[in-house]
Structure formats: C-alpha cells, structure tokens
C-alpha cells in the first residue's frame, strides 16, 4: 500500500502532551522519558506478537499432521509424538513463550513446506527487504525535505504549486503500480529484474535497486513533503518566527533554528507511522521487480499456509516497526522539550 491512514492532528496531540504552566523542571528527564517509551514499546511488542501467534493458531489444519509425513502413511501415534515434540500440547502462554524466546535466539522453526529452517529462508531475504526499505526511506527524505523547504520559502510561486501538484499525485499512486510504470518506461534501458548483492558489485547493486527504491519511496516522499511543507508554512507564520524577525535574527537562522525545527515534529510522527506502510509496500514492490526479498516468501507462505514462515516474517516486520517507532519517540523527545520534560502522556 502506498499510504496508510494518517492523522497528524490526533497523533501530534498524543505525543506533544503539553503542560502550560508546569513547574520549572529541575533537569532534563530524557532518561525517564526514554524508559517510558521503551516500556510502552515492550507492551505493544508483546501484544502484537501475541496477536500474531494466536492468529497462526487459527490456521486450519494440524501442523503436526502435515509435518509428520504425507497423509495416510502415518499412525495417530506418530502424530501425537510430533505434537509433543512441537510442544503443541502445552498451554498457549507456554507455547508463546517458547516461540518468542526461540525467535529471539534466531530459531523460527522449520518451514512446513520448504523443509528448510525459517532462519535460513529469512536470512538473505530480510537483508534485501531491509535494504529496499532503507534506500526508499532515505531517498524520500533526501528529496522531500529540501524540496519542502524551498516550496515553503517561495510559497505560492509557480515552482511551489508544481511541487504540491506532484506531491498530491504522488500520494495517490500506489507503489506497486508505480513499479509497473517504471518497468514499462525503463525496460531496455536499465536491468529491471533481479538482485545483485552490494558485496559482489556495488554499481550493479545500485543499478538494480534504483527503480524499486524510487517506486517504493515516491509515495512516502510525497507524504513527507506535504507534511513538512504544511508544518513550515504554519511555523513561518507563527508568532515566535515573527519575534525572531522583529529582533533582527538573520533569515537563514530564522528558517533553520526557529521554523524548520518546529515544523519537523509532525513530519517525524508521520515518518514513524509510515515506516510500517513502507515495509508493507516493500513486500509488494519486490514482487513486481522479482527481488528475492521477504515479499515472495511471505506470499508463498500465506498461499501454502506455511505458518512458521508467515509467523516469522510478520514477527520480524512488527519488531522492526516497533523499534523504528521507539527511535522516533526518542528523537521526538530530543527535539521537543514539552515531551521530554513532562511526565508521561496526558
């Protein structure tokens, strides 16, 4: 999906728990704030992974029966034994604990269909998906932030209007369709399909990743652009920017220290929320470009009901998403003293 639902206002309010007339704080409570964010992240991670775990238990069919061997040739006794080996007779919390601790050690079990261990299957594919997501993220940020600054600086100019038009179009273009468009346009000029590891040839690696990264990053870039531009327009019209100007602070400094820094807060929130959409989108874009990432693996897993594989893929994505949001929370607290110095959420 190119975009996930975004509600800047609601989330901004959630994070910027303002206390108007709070006491003069003693010293930065950053450590406390980080600890709180960490605790919340752990609660969310446990909840989300439990949900994933339970979900996989809903899959019809007895994994023990599948794993024990082809139908008909195995006795009930053998199945029962497999069940015990897999721990499927244990209470659910025990099973969850066994699964999650094993996963923490890198042991995700064995694929029911492919016969390999899931960690072997995941290994390189995870790297490809992570690379694609990361490249798209940085490509988008590197493009969207400077353009949004320029657009806000020359508000209403033709270039600003053009950038906004491209931005609102970009939000509406699904990444997997943009992938197809890029393929149609660039087939014959650039190698379209496949993957080359950076260790093998950096140039080939970049050449193979550029179109997927553009396809995946475009919608994200458009969203970052719109958010940051809107934020800048607001802060540039704010009273404190007027004060800074009234006291003769040079315009470049007004822009950097006063306007951009404040405008960046909602942008940061959007980036955190969208990180999930970015990774989901990576799964789809990989399919279009035949990149050997998690996308193909998870789709095959879903189709063949290979629950250890699906479970592991979702677990990995959820954990990355939670960690990314934790990082965003910490950066947010670093930038915004109102969050850092107030106790927890309102």
């Amino acid at each position: 999906m190119a975009v996930q639902l975004t509600v800047p206002a609601a989330d901004g309010g959630r994070r910027a728990a303002r206390r108007r007339d709070g006491p003069v704080a003693r010293s930065g409570r950053l450590a406390g704030r980080v600890a709180l964010s960490l605790l919340q992240a752990v609660v969310v991670a446990v909840g989300a992974t439990s949900a994933v775990f339970l979900l996989m238990r809903l899959i019809p069919g007895d994994p023990a029966r599948i794993l024990a061997g082809p139908g008909g040739s195995v006795t009930e006794e053998q199945i029962a034994m497999t069940r015990r080996e897999l721990g499927l007779d244990d209470p659910l919390p025990v099973q969850y604990w066994d699964w999650i601790t094993a996963a923490a050690r890198g042991d995700f079990g064995t694929s029911l269909v492919l016969g390999e261990t899931v960690s072997d299957l995941l290994g390189d594919r995870l790297v490809v998906t992570a690379q694609l997501s990361a490249y798209s993220f940085w490509l988008a940020v590197a493009l969207a932030i400077p353009v949004s600054v320029a657009a806000a600086r020359w508000q209403g100019a033709a270039a600003d209007r053009a950038a906004r038009l491209v931005g609102s179009t970009g939000i509406a273009v699904p990444s997997f369709w943009l992938a197809l468009l890029l393929i149609i346009v660039f087939q014959g000029y650039l190698p379209i399909f496949g993957y080359v590891p950076a260790s093998e040839s950096l140039v080939d690696h970049v050449v193979h990743m550029i179109l997927p990264a553009v396809a995946l990053g475009a919608g994200f870039a458009a969203l970052v652009f719109e958010t940051n531009r809107a934020g800048l327009v607001e802060t540039l019209g704010s009273d404190y920017v007027r004060t800074a100007r009234a006291f003769g602070i040079p315009e470049w400094r007004v822009f950097g220290r006063y306007a951009l820094r404040n405008a960046f807060l909602p942008t940061l929130t959007i980036m955190g929320i969208q990180a999930g959409a970015l990774m989901s989108g990576a799964l789809l874009v990989e399919n279009a470009f035949a990149l050997p990432g998690m996308g193909r693996l998870i789709v095959q897993g879903v189709l063949s009901r290979d629950y250890p594989v699906v479970q592991a893929c979702i677990l990995v994505i959820v954990v990355i998403f939670v960690v990314v949001n934790l990082l965003m929370d910490v950066i947010y607290a670093l930038v915004d003293p109102r969050v850092r110095r107030s106790r927890g959420r309102a």
Binding site: Y240, A244, R261
Partner: peptide
C-alpha cells in the same frame, strides 16, 4: 531589517506564542 532589535525593539501581546517553544 538592520533597524530591527537594534534601533527599534518590539514586544508582543501573547508572550507564550511569541517565544520559540523548543528553545530555552
């Protein structure tokens, strides 16, 4: 601009919004 702050200083109605919220 050269006059601002040096020859003419200005104070504002709402001192909360007139100061940058994320800077000491």
């Amino acid at each position: 601009r050269p006059l601002r702050g040096r020859d003419v200083a200005m104070i504002f109605q709402d001192p909360l919004t007139a100061l940058n919220p994320v800077m000491p």
